[in-house]
């Protein structure tokens, strides 16, 4: 008896599918109606989309003040390695290091998480995390109920194609487009299920 792998591959060959043409790619590589180099418009769209999701957007010259505002009444926050220490200087809560790793229960009992991101997308209001410096591991950005993400303006792409091209697929990636939500009950959108229910974005120049 042949093994499953051999048999499935044999069936695929037996299906004799004729060759296919190379796919056309005539879609837009930037957000509809926006020029990629119109940075003010791209950033405005990013903020608008985030606001539509119910995320808080805080444009800031000075990260420390904005971070303190975004963390608000959170008394504890996970602060991943690689995040500039001065960002939490004006916040008087307890910053928790994830080194050595916090247990899941401990993460769950932490109010907030503060991170940077790998890239962002204006068109869909998306933040992309790749576990790089200042971003922490995936569990750390999942269990606390408030996620504060600091985004530099230069990281914001107008649409998904530009952002995807710069990512490393070998890293575990999380694309966050607004706080967790569901439409499973009568297709009515309800914000806040399992992921962080509140999302705040500090947008640096």
């Amino acid at each position: 008896m042949t093994d499953a792998r051999t048999e499935i591959l044999r069936r695929i060959r037996a299906a004799a599918v004729p060759p296919a043409a190379a796919p056309p790619r005539h879609y837009l590589r930037h957000a509809p109606g926006l020029a990629e180099d119109d940075r003010p418009a791209v950033l405005a769209l990013f903020a608008e989309r985030l606001a539509e999701y119910g995320a808080t957007v805080l444009p800031a010259e000075d990260p420390a003040t904005a971070v303190a505002e975004a963390l608000g009444d959170a008394r504890t926050a996970v602060v991943p390695a690689g995040l500039p220490a001065e960002w939490t200087a004006r916040w008087d809560g307890e910053a928790r290091s994830d080194r050595p790793p916090l247990t899941h229960a401990r993460l769950d009992a932490t109010d907030a998480v503060l991170t940077t991101c790998a890239a962002a997308v204006a068109d869909s209001g998306t933040l992309i995390l790749d576990g790089g410096p200042g971003q922490g591991r995936r569990a750390a950005t999942l269990l606390p109920d408030l996620h504060v993400c600091v985004v530099r303006a230069a990281q914001v792409h107008s649409a998904l194609p530009g952002a995807l091209a710069g990512l490393d697929p070998r890293r575990p990636l999380t694309f966050v487009s607004g706080p967790s939500a569901t439409a499973d009950i009568e297709m009515i959108r309800v914000k806040g299920v399992h992921g962080p229910r509140r999302l705040a974005v500090v947008l640096l120049p």
Partner: peptide, 14 residues
Amino acid sequence: ERMAPYTSTWTGTT
């Protein structure tokens, strides 16, 4: 929606 709230990608283990 323009994007679903969460898209996760992974390659093997990390």
